[in-house]
Simulated assay, not measured.
Amino acid sequence: MIILLPPSETKREGGDATKLDMTRLRFSSLTATRRRVIRELRALSQDEEASLKALKISARLRSEVVRNRSVTTSPTMPALDRYTGVIFDALDSGSLPVEARSFAATHVVIQSALLGPIGGMDPIPAYRLSHDSKLPGIHLAKTWAPVVPTEIGADGELVLDFRSEGYVALSPLAPGVNSWFLRVVTESDDGTVRALNHFNKKAKGLLTRALLLNARDLESIEEVIAVAAEAGYRMELGDQKEVRLYAPKG
């Protein structure tokens, strides 16, 4: 089983003294592409105003440009600990027991716009780059889409795609992969079901945490639904390889 997560715009500061080491990242087939994207991002970071425009951030976030300038030399920390924001705050990786963190190392993949798919415990620096950022010499979707790691779902393993649609488009999975896209929905008092946007992130984080605490390599979407139910979350099969997660009320 693979839990495929989107990244977060925001990153935690700090880390250990170890700088980015490509050999410690999952999916070694991506090394050349990773180096190319990093090279373009660092080049862009030399022009502060151009960086702000390309990254679609305001002047008050100039520190993000500095981060990008030093992305190859700054400290690293495990990806699940590096990312902050709604999904990762709900997941709360720092409080996970050792067994759950070990399970995350082999069963969580995060779709980074800078590094492509990475393992949940891969050591990464802080950076700023989104799926819709504009690098001068690179179109991110055209760069990442052709090099999706064939290892993801290659043996028929279950892939739970918790990514946003923007990150799905950035790096679509190979045809034939046993993947299920997670749609977070809410049900009103009259029974009407509608998809959530921003508030879906917390539900994704909570479900991911429940699956990591369960720490079992599930083989079917029915098993996932059962584990979710045990943790108090309602899930149902949808159409065309989609599964619905009902956001907790309150």
Rank of each mutant, 00 (worst) to 15 (best):
residue 2 I to A: 01
residue 5 L to D: 06
residue 6 P to C: 07
residue 7 P to S: 06
residue 8 S to W: 03
residue 9 E to P: 05
residue 15 G to V: 07
residue 16 D to Y: 00
residue 18 T to M: 08
residue 20 L to C: 07
residue 21 D to Q: 14
residue 27 F to D: 01
residue 27 F to Y: 11
residue 27 F to L: 10
residue 28 S to N: 09
residue 29 S to G: 14
residue 29 S to L: 15
residue 33 T to M: 08
residue 35 R to C: 03
residue 37 V to W: 12
residue 37 V to L: 01
residue 38 I to W: 01
residue 41 L to V: 13
residue 44 L to Y: 03
residue 45 S to C: 05
residue 45 S to R: 01
residue 46 Q to I: 09
residue 47 D to E: 10
residue 48 E to K: 05
residue 48 E to M: 04
residue 49 E to P: 10
residue 50 A to Q: 12
residue 51 S to F: 03
residue 52 L to G: 05
residue 54 A to Y: 02
residue 55 L to I: 05
residue 55 L to S: 00
residue 58 S to A: 15
residue 62 R to V: 08
residue 65 V to M: 02
residue 67 R to V: 02
residue 72 T to S: 13
residue 74 S to W: 09
residue 74 S to Y: 14
residue 81 D to E: 14
residue 82 R to M: 08
residue 85 G to C: 11
residue 85 G to P: 05
residue 85 G to K: 03
residue 87 I to K: 09
residue 90 A to K: 13
residue 91 L to S: 03
residue 92 D to G: 12
residue 93 S to Q: 05
residue 97 P to C: 11
residue 98 V to A: 13
residue 98 V to D: 10
residue 99 E to N: 14
residue 99 E to F: 02
residue 99 E to Y: 14
residue 103 F to C: 08
residue 105 A to L: 12
residue 108 V to A: 13
residue 109 V to H: 03
residue 109 V to G: 04
residue 110 I to K: 04
residue 111 Q to C: 13
residue 112 S to I: 06
residue 113 A to L: 04
residue 113 A to T: 06
residue 115 L to M: 13
residue 117 P to N: 11
residue 118 I to H: 02
residue 118 I to F: 07
residue 119 G to H: 03
residue 120 G to M: 08
residue 121 M to L: 15
residue 121 M to Q: 11
residue 124 I to V: 15
residue 124 I to M: 03
residue 125 P to K: 14
residue 125 P to M: 02
residue 127 Y to E: 04
residue 129 L to P: 00
residue 131 H to P: 02
residue 135 L to W: 04
residue 137 G to C: 12
residue 137 G to H: 05
residue 139 H to C: 14
residue 139 H to N: 15
residue 142 K to Y: 03
residue 142 K to F: 00
residue 143 T to H: 02
residue 146 P to N: 14
residue 147 V to E: 09
residue 147 V to R: 08
residue 152 I to H: 01
residue 154 A to I: 05
residue 157 E to V: 03
residue 159 V to C: 06
residue 159 V to R: 03
residue 161 D to N: 03
residue 163 R to E: 05
residue 164 S to E: 02
residue 169 A to M: 14
residue 176 G to W: 12
residue 179 S to W: 00
residue 183 R to D: 10
residue 183 R to I: 13
residue 187 E to A: 11
residue 192 T to L: 12
residue 194 R to Y: 11
residue 195 A to K: 11
residue 195 A to T: 15
residue 195 A to R: 12
residue 196 L to V: 09
residue 198 H to R: 15
residue 199 F to N: 07
residue 200 N to R: 13
residue 201 K to Q: 13
residue 206 L to N: 02
residue 207 L to A: 13
residue 210 A to N: 12
residue 211 L to K: 05
residue 215 A to V: 04
residue 215 A to N: 10
residue 219 E to H: 09
residue 219 E to L: 06
residue 219 E to N: 06
residue 222 E to R: 09
residue 223 E to C: 03
residue 223 E to P: 01
residue 228 A to K: 00
residue 228 A to I: 03
residue 229 A to E: 13
residue 229 A to D: 09
residue 229 A to N: 09
residue 230 E to M: 14
residue 234 R to Q: 06
residue 234 R to I: 13
residue 236 E to I: 08
residue 237 L to M: 15
residue 241 K to P: 00
residue 241 K to T: 06
residue 243 V to G: 02
residue 244 R to M: 11
residue 244 R to H: 15
residue 247 A to F: 00
residue 248 P to G: 15
residue 250 G to I: 09
